[in-house]
Design a protein around this nucleic acid. Structure first.
Length: 575
RNA sequence: CGGGGCGUAGCUCAGCUUGGCUAGAGCGCCUGGUUUGGGACCAGGAGGCCGGUGGUUCGAAUCCACUCGCCCCGACCA
């Protein structure tokens, strides 16, 4: 391509509302343009990068034995009602009525549609295993789109669904996907980490996320330096603490006017936070859930939801007052067993005795409260969030906490959807069985953003060559110099013939402008053809990442550049 | 949904507090000339419903009310 013929609207100034490096650089580099909150146009450079990513994804999916198809984004709401997920997704699901008044939704993910396909066409175990994928635009009415392409309301996702006859088959399918994902992210040049994950609204048992550590990520993950354990913070199990006997001191009510936070209670009563018990009130449908955690611990809602076995929602102020009989900040477990609440205590509570809780009465707390004697949790579970200082659940080593961008997620779904949608097959004994399913997502349009977050400098993007919009940027310093342009054109057509993806900057601009745009856009290989070099029969080649800068004889140019390009690609493919 | 901020030229912003001439600057864009290895220079030029609606006023970019949109933090999130 010739630069002069392309729409590459680079800009010097950073748009006001871009904060992340990836967001800023993609706008400044002329890759994307925002239209509304959480929607973007992919400009020519942007769609080139996106195509490079989708092609890698497609190749590796096919290599792993999956088959591509394309399902509609526009779907009848009824298919969501069949699995109850219209309620689980709630307002996140875009929904509207057509002219005949039929309720429609825009797909956020496609478990229902694919399961419908499976139940229609798959009848025999002989047709299994099967893995179907698509690369498609998804819609989610997020409460708050943010971070440029990190979280948008319309985005491109690769989703795959596997169908197996049994758990062993699912294990194999899952493994194949896990490996395909590793190859995909390596080829895209991402510094990714697979972590154990929670399966959230998708459901299912085993699940891994592929994370790209970045301070701007919206997820948190933990890693253990000694044993290699890595998990989403939501998933990170915490070892049960040694149980201690309950205390025997008598419960005593004390006045604690206006102390609604742990810090206030702690300093008012001169009791350290780890002697306090926090009582948080949630709802799970009609059910009231009381979550009990130690004062200095944080509740993890994903873990609580898992312990309860249903989606949960924090109760609002009025509801808290109705349930506890006191303003927010004074709830406690004592007496709540009789009020029909489901009480979940964190494991750490077993290691507490004679602690302080809210009195379910304004401006009052109770001292010397003890479990079993004064209240009885329905269940003890690991419901608190891992935090600094917690030990690795596998080896006891030190955990480190980092922010990360989730780029992929693989789930073992099991038979949840197939049973709910009555999707099954006949096994070799002629018996009807539900499909054992897996599902596997990649945030395709997040990949470029994640790559930039970890590959940029003050001048611009530093693309991994595999997902750069062009592999080589060829810059003649002075387009009015005929002789120089002839050399540049010769190199250009030679590279094109060798299958190198090259952009010729034929604009009548000063060299400085071209260099600055080159660095902003981030093309990995830059070739400069200028009068100085031509005099000596050479041109300059410089890698954007700074790892190489050299002069190459014009005669060897095409071969040398092709070789370097291939080396850069190979380096990522082998990882 | 709670808290905060912002809407003036394609982009970044000034002007608004204290209402008043024809609404400004830099960058970008167009024309001509000079320049040509790190965002050149000179001269000329195009480009604005001052987010929208309603009000106050002789007069509104400026004050008031409502509204729409965007961003950030939080909550939420596959």
């Amino acid at each position: 391509m010739r630069y002069s013929r392309m729409l590459i609207p680079t800009q010097k100034e950073t748009p006001q509302d871009a904060t992340l490096p990836s967001h800023m650089l993609m706008i400044r580099g002329g890759y994307i343009r925002p239209l509304a909150a959480g929607t973007f146009t992919y400009l020519p450079l942007g769609i080139r990068t996106l195509h490079k990513v989708t092609e890698i994804v497609r190749q590796e999916m096919v290599r792993s034995g999956a088959e591509e198809l394309l399902m509609p984004a526009l779907q009848p709401l009824s298919i969501w009602q069949e699995t109850g997920r219209d309620e689980i997704f709630g307002p996140v699901l875009f929904r509207f009525d057509d002219r005949r008044g039929r309720s429609l939704a825009l797909g956020t993910t496609h478990e229902e549609v694919i399961t419908d396909i499976a139940r229609s066409y798959l009848r025999s175990y002989r047709q299994l295993p099967l893995n179907l994928f698509q690369i498609q635009t998804k819609f989610r009415d997020e409460e708050r789109p943010r971070g440029g392409l990190i979280r948008t309301r319309e985005f491109i996702m690769k989703d795959a669904y596997s169908f197996d006859r049994d758990e062993a088959g699912l294990d194999a399918s899952y493994q194949a996907m896990y490996q395909a994902y590793s190859r995909i992210f390596s080829r895209c040049g991402l510094d990714y980490v697979p972590v154990e994950a929670d399966s959230g609204a998708i459901g299912g048992s085993v699940s891994h996320e592929f994370m790209v550590p970045s301070p701007h990520g919206e997820d948190s993950m933990v890693t253990c330096g000694s044993c290699g354990y890595a998990a989403n913070v939501e998933r990170c199990e915490l070892p049960a603490m040694e149980e201690i006997p309950a205390g025997t001191a008598a419960v005593e009510e004390v006045e604690t006017p206006g102390t609604t936070t742990i810090e206030q209670v702690s300093s008012f009563l001169k009791v350290s936070p780890d002697r306090l018990l926090k009582t948080l009130i949630y709802t799970a449908g009609e059910k009231i859930v009381l979550a009990l955690v130690r004062g200095d611990h944080e509740l993890n809602e994903a873990k609580l939801a898992r312990a309860v076995g249903a989606p949960i929602e924090m109760a609002d102020g009025p509801l808290v007052e109705k349930i506890s009989g006191a303003a927010v900040g004074f709830a406690g477990p004592v007496g709540m067993n009789d009020r029909g609440a489901f009480m979940v205590a964190d494991n750490a509570v077993k290691a507490m005795a004679d602690f302080v809780t809210g009195a379910n009465k304004n401006d009052a707390h109770l001292l010397n409260v003890n479990r079993e004697r004064d209240f009885a949790p329905d269940v003890y579970a690991d419901i608190r969030a891992a935090g600094e200082g917690d030990a690795c659940p596998r080896c006891g080593g030190a955990l480190s906490f980092v922010r990360a961008i989730e780029v992929g997620h693989v789930f073992k779904l099991g038979t949840r959807y197939s049973e709910m949608m009555n999707a099954g097959f006949l096994d070799d004994a002629g018996k009807n069985r539900p499909f054992v399913m897996g599902c596997y997502g990649i945030g395709v349009s997040r990949i470029p953003a994640a790559a930039i977050e970890t590959h940029h400098d003050e001048k611009g993007i530093v693309w991994p060559i595999t997902i750069a919009p062009f592999e080589v940027l060829l810059i003649p310093t002075n387009p009015t110099d005929q002789a120089l342009m002839q050399h540049a054109e010769a190199l250009y057509s030679g590279l094109l013939e060798n299958g190198v993806d090259v952009l010729l900057d034929d604009r009548d601009e000063r060299a400085g402008v071209k260099f600055n745009d080159a660095e902003l856009i981030g093309v990995p290989v830059r070739i400069t053809v200028g009068p100085r070099g031509i005099k000596n029969g050479v041109f300059e080649l410089k890698l954007r990442d700074g790892s190489m800068e050299s002069e190459i004889p014009l005669a060897e140019g095409v071969a040398a550049v092709s070789r370097i390009r291939n080396e850069l690609v190979d380096r990522l493919s082998k990882a």
